[in-house]
Design a protein around this nucleic acid. Structure first.
Lengths: 213, 213
DNA sequence: GCGTATATCCGTATTACTACTGAACGCTGT
DNA sequence: ACAGCGTTCAGTAGTAATACGGATATACGC
């Protein structure tokens, strides 16, 4: 997709006003053509199958079927349409879910015109574009995870033991690896349980993985 | 960062020829200025601290200090410079590690001039830009994971039970949730162990998480 | 020196999980 | 009708983990 080729777009949003705004913005852009519009996810799926647009510009929260569900179905049908989400929320859950499904881009609704065009061109080429605030939100989430990894006040030894538990090692094996008694492993394990509030072995494994192994 | 504002760039690559090629490409672009060049990660860190560029265009594999290490140090120092990686490899490990560190973009060295400018503009604005092949590679990795999730020949019920085990639920709780007997839960659990080769409960949790919960 | 934290070890008792075998019921496809 | 599979439940036995209790040694800061 060269920048001088026509990019065919479908716009999906349940608010008429917003669709009109987008249309107005893109009307005088020579390399972009809006070939259809719709107001829910079901229409998005139908229109993409019939018209095979280059880019699907879609909201997330919509009646009947939301954007994420629609995107998942479209991805499953194997249509090559690039999906660019346009949301009012920079919610981490949404963003990660969108990327997991295979979305090509994600921008917020306060996006400027040049940035919107930039995003459209990028995803049309097959690139992945995440708007500034979206990227910042994702990064913040990653930071929070990293920060969390230093918590619970676990000592070095306890972290070592926890990591081996998460691997699925038995106390016996952990004792052998760290060259300590099984009873000591049990003590550390008990301390980890107390500090993290985890009971079950599987729960400890979950906690360990949340903390980055 | 408006598109008509000057974007100050530092280029880091250990191949002189490649740096010269990039310079030549960007020389006649009015809104981009190359303010420094370097040939390894150590120089990248120094130059970014002294000159505070808008964008750091950097290779990954380099002598002395590679790009990923340099990026991590730069991120830790809190410098606002956007980092755009330029690599010959679309290796999934590299890409994910780069994004984890907090890189703003990733393109391959076969990038066209308009796409390169698009990427530079995008990251300068604070967006995240992943080139077409990079995005494809990431998606391929995600698909592989999803495919793996359908393996081991687990039945629906077994997957349900495994998911709850991974949550750290006790057999008793799982039985209550699924409204079946504890013995049945034990049967399913046993079947899962047999099929996955997992022994320990913590190991089952690990397997479940590898399969995407 | 003293208190605190960490790491190390032990005993006893209960609970949860693992290993093995067996069996009944419903559904699917031949 | 029959075989195969998935789901359901049960018995019996052993092993691992959890929940209490207590103990010693070493290092570190005040």
């Amino acid at each position: 997709m060269r920048s001088n080729q026509l990019i065919k777009i479908i716009i999906i949003d349940d608010h008429d006003l917003l669709r009109e705004g987008i249309s107005a913005r893109l009307q005088d852009v020579p390399y972009v053509e809006i070939i259809a519009e719709g107001s829910n996810g079901r229409e998005a799926v139908d229109l993409c199958q019939r018209l095979q647009p280059d880019v699907l510009l879609m909201d997330i929260s919509m009646p009947v079927m939301n954007g994420l569900e629609a995107a998942e179905i479209i991805r499953e049908t194997g249509i090559k349409t690039r999906i660019l989400f346009l949301s009012i929320y920079d919610d981490n859950e949404y963003i990660q879910e969108a990327l997991r499904i295979g979305a090509n881009g994600f921008v917020l609704k306060d996006v400027s015109k040049p940035e919107m065009l930039n995003a459209i061109k990028s995803v049309a080429q097959g690139a992945t574009y995440l708007g500034p605030k979206v990227a910042a939100s994702l990064q913040k989430g990653a930071d929070a995870q990293t920060e969390c990894a230093t918590n619970y006040g676990l000592t070095k030894r306890e972290k070592q033991v926890l990591a081996l538990i998460a691997e699925g090692q038995l106390n016996k094996e952990i004792a052998y690896r760290l060259d300590i008694s099984i009873r000591t492993v049990e003590s550390h394990r008990s301390a980890v349980r107390d500090k993290t509030g985890g009971g079950n072995a599987a729960r400890l494994a979950k906690i360990a993985r949340d903390l980055g192994l």
